[in-house]
């Protein structure tokens, strides 16, 4: 009797802030001026959508991989610290995480600008004669997104790594594995659930990125979220925008299912119970 009451507030919030808008978006996308399939037809025929959708997937994928690549060693390092010092490192990771995405994005704009910190340094060091263009490039978008998402990667991975039995790596060593092979054959496979969880989170978050690609990438590096914004604000086309929102949601679901399938539950929860 009590349990349903406990989740009731959450369900109510979920209903108000997810189900209702979702149903509304469904309604809009299938009741546009051009008939029930106007949104779908646009999606199928628009090369703009196709290109931006692919670009978004590519961006999400590369950002996810870069975050994992940078976050994994950092997480290893933090997880390897004594518990008393781990807190300090985690605080250092969390500090930027608690800073608003907008602030961090604008800061990148200051760094990457034509007369920004990076160009000034390059010129001062004599590595470049004139300002290079960093703003509104794929590099800027990747930098901004990686910086924002890296804490997510590190926190997720540290969570899994600190749960691991450190004795397993020692066991591998004494049984004949070099440090590298102990990592490769034992540590890395055991952190797979963490890698999968982090990848899932990072990919889904990347798919929906809006502010950072808009401010650092500009209109030449639009993501699906930016295209939805363009549809609503410039083209006044809510039908296509809603249809795209549904595609984004579907992509997210497919990504989750795919990863779940690639890494079944058995290994996800295969601790030394």
């Amino acid at each position: 009797m009590v349990a349903p009451l406990l989740v009731a507030p959450l369900l109510l919030l979920f209903a108000i802030f997810f189900v209702v808008p979702f149903v509304e978006i469904m309604r809009i996308s299938f009741s546009g001026q051009g008939g029930a399939l106007a949104g779908a037809t646009w999606l199928m025929s628009s090369s703009l959508f196709a290109v931006i959708f692919l670009n978004t997937l590519k961006l999400a994928l590369t950002v996810t991989l870069i975050c994992l690549g940078l976050g994994y060693p950092a997480a290893c390092f933090i997880a390897g610290q004594p518990a008393s010092q781990r807190g300090i490192y985690l605080a250092l990771v969390l500090l930027p995480f608690w800073t608003s995405v907008l602030v961090r994005t604008y800061t990148w704009a200051l760094v990457l600008g034509r007369e920004g910190l990076l160009n000034a340094s390059l010129i001062w060091l004599g590595l470049s004669d004139e300002p290079q263009r960093f703003m509104f490039t794929p590099l800027a978008v990747h930098l901004g997104m990686v910086q924002i998402l890296l804490p997510v990667a590190i926190l997720t991975l540290v969570g899994v790594m600190t749960e691991l039995d450190p004795g397993l790596a020692r066991a591998a060593r004494v049984l004949g594995a070099s440090p590298w092979r102990a990592f490769w054959h034992v540590y890395l496979p055991m952190t797979k659930p963490g890698i999968v969880a982090a990848a899932m989170l990072l990919f889904i978050l990347s798919l929906g990125f809006y502010i950072t690609p808009a401010l650092l990438g500009g209109p030449r590096h639009r993501t699906i979220a930016n295209l939805i914004d363009l549809q609503v604000h410039q083209m006044n086309d809510w039908t296509s925008a809603s249809a795209m929102a549904l595609v984004l949601l579907a992509t997210t679901i497919v990504a989750v299912v795919l990863l779940r399938w690639l890494v079944p539950d058995r290994t996800l929860h295969g601790g030394a119970g």
């Binding site: 039995d165 004795g167 397993l168 020692r170 066991a171 591998a172 060593r173 004494v174 049984l175 004949g176 594995a177 070099s178 102990a182 034992v186 496979p189 055991m190 797979k192 290994t267 295969g270 601790g271 030394a272």
Partner: peptide, 17 residues
């Protein structure tokens, strides 16, 4: 790893994967 000794641990330390 070069000492070539076998070892058994209290917590077994079997590789769960």
């Amino acid at each position: 790893e070069k000492r070539n000794v076998g070892m058994v641990f209290q917590s077994y330390s079997l590789f769960p994967h």
